[in-house]
Design a protein around this nucleic acid. Structure first.
Lengths: 125, 125
DNA sequence: TGGGGTACTTACCTCTTGGTAAGTGCCAGG
DNA sequence: CCTGGCACTTACCAAGAGGTAAGTACCCCA
């Protein structure tokens, strides 16, 4: 198991950060916000550099946290679709100001943004 | 060194989470928001369970990230005061909705919430 | 027949995060 | 004189996050 996690929290930010921390979780949230419904391989292609292990691990944790729904279709070849729950969408809303702050900070310091020339199917936040 | 960090970012949330992630950073922000100015030992008492090492480390990183100001008074006994910068305060503003979401989540799932005052009164484990 | 796509799981390994404990130099109070 | 507070630093260590690579089981297309 990845984390014993979900310990007693000191405040709301504590709890929210616990759920969002993980190298790719913010991006997964963003992908699912943009596309509503995504299959595993689509997410993988949307997050350049992610390993399959981490993708499944993060998705399972986010499912357990009630952020995403996982729908399995009993087909061959297998088909699994992911989408946001109501709470996942609310979390994205709550993350928006933080995203703005981050963009502002990037602009302020002239930080690089990653340059996926090919995988540039990823506009802002 | 703590972190090579501050890599190229994929989006604003990425950048913001990078700056905020660290076991105690959210709490430090919150303490400094509440009290405006805090000395090292006051922060330590305010964050029950933090080690001196992590406190200094986090504070130095947050200083480097332009979130807090560190003011040293050339006195004996030493006095060092920490406070938020404009950007630190803006970050706190941006974190507010996330904090609300987290509180809502705690309420929803009946998670335990450590009482700050109780925790401060707890002995060192 | 062979390569690639589907959605994973598993084992192994490394690097980072954070904790523990001790040391530093100075001073005030009992 | 000895303890404790101030604000740290340093060395060492354990746990965990995340990467790599391979395996699984089935199918479609050339």
């Amino acid at each position: 198991m990845a984390t014993d996690r979900r310990g007693p929290y000191i405040c709301g930010i504590d709890a929210a950060l616990d759920v969002v921390s993980g190298k790719w979780k913010g991006l997964i949230l963003w992908e699912l916000e943009e596309h509503e419904i995504r299959r595993f391989a689509e997410l993988r292609r949307g997050l350049p550099g992610v390993s399959e292990k981490m993708l499944t691990q993060h998705l399972r944790e986010m499912e357990a946290d009630g952020l995403v729904v996982r729908t399995v279709y009993a087909e061959v070849p297998p088909r699994v679709e992911y989408s946001l729950t109501e709470h996942g969408r609310a979390l994205n809303q709550a993350l928006a100001p933080l995203g703005d702050w981050g963009s502002e900070r990037i602009r302020r310091e002239g930080r690089e943004l990653i340059d996926h020339a090919d995988a540039a199917a990823m506009p802002r936040p």
